[in-house]
Amino acid sequence: MSACLDIIDLSAVLANGQRVLRSVSLTVQPGEVRALVGESGAGKTMIGKAVLGVLPSSVRIVEGDMRLEGEDLGRLQPKARRTLIGARTALIPQDPLTALNPSRRIGPQMTDRLVRILGWSGDKADKRVRQLLDEVQIREPDRVLRSYPHELSGGMRQRVLIAAAFAAEPRLIVADEPTTALDVTVQKQILRLIAELQREHGTAILFVTHDLGVVAKISQKVSVLYAGKVVEEADTATLFASPQHPYTRALMAATPRYTDPFASLKPVDETVLAGLAAEIAAADQAWSRPHG
């Protein structure tokens, strides 16, 4: 059985030639949650966008393959690729405030995709959307479906977006820091909802986050990213029990602990950063030799 998502040696550069992804490889098995963790600017979101085919025009993929359920995305015609990505993937975005069209009601926004892209009947789409709203614990589906996005709270909007993402039964969901823009009490509920729906629907998730606490709660596998390079990859339990890479250890040490709120936060150590810089430089040199 082929993996749900298979990324092999993916490299991408900016227009000025600077590398933003450095031979990234990662696999998401069907029904599995793979966390992609790293500091901001590490390229985690870039990987998600590359998979979904919405990289900004300034970023160019120069090498590597992406396979979605065995289909090589690079070999497909643009139109066929769009259709495949549209049918089998979905995004849970970072900012629920800008991810819904402000001038359209929630109902049509949610059902549209099912009707137009998957060719469902209006009734079937409506039933499906209501079922999903129930699953994300929205108690007044009629009111919500008739609302404009600005009439709902941030947490409500994120629930709507989660429901929308799961509604089309995608095989893979890219969750791009889905709790970052929410306040802490809502974060927990949203995280629990995503985990619950993931288990029920058996959807594979590529979960992008900078929060190790979230990683521990939701994922089975982790890839730790630094400067567009995967520095460590392991089962979540193994990673937390015995982190191998010094950067991973430093990240864990830098995570604030609720049990000791007055302890000062530790930034990542200088020597660790120097080691990382050397590692990246060596990798770049090795990479640029055959690539001129």
Binding site: G53, T83, L91, A99, R113
Partner: peptide, 8 residues
């Protein structure tokens, strides 16, 4: 972007 991902 979401609409593009959906394949519109």
């Amino acid at each position: 972007e979401n609409a593009r991902i959906a394949g519109y």
